[in-house]
Amino acid sequence: MQVAGEFVFQAGRDAVWQLLNDPEVLGRCLPGCEQLVPVAEDRYAAKVRVGLAAVKGTYEGSLAVTDKQAPAAMTLRIDMKGTTGFVAIAGRMLFEAGEPDAPAGGEGGVASTRVAYDWDVKVGGPVAMVGQRVLGGVAKWIIGEFFAAAKAELAARGSAV
């Protein structure tokens, strides 16, 4: 299954790049993530708890970032397996600097960054057998939750600065 989309952050490209390469942030933002431990450079051991239709389970595996072209592009590879099957996600993420917003209150425009993703999602075992009809919806939900959380992180950083 191919899952593609994009998400716009109201921040500069470097800031967004840093955000999405911060394991702490990833661990906090990924729905159901119980553990994200670095095991090597850009490689993490992950443990995630997800429910898909009637199939709820814990998945363990690895998350890796490769082919980095900071701050423009990277490849994300997630391989998880659990009691109810396996999930393998692989695909490119592109970071594009957007046009600054038109100045609203007379100040300079806020930079924006468009993050486009195109992931190949493979799911197998009971989770695919039972949950396939809701798979697309659940994938979109998880991705949406992730980016929303990341955006909140960004906002929090912004206010902290």
């Binding site: 299954m1 695919a128 057998m129 009809r133």
Partner: peptide, 14 residues
């Protein structure tokens, strides 16, 4: 089946 050979119809809802 999907192209990976996963059987997608394993309940009587599908």
């Amino acid at each position: 089946f999907d192209e990976e050979g996963q059987l997608l119809t394993t309940t009587f809802a599908d």
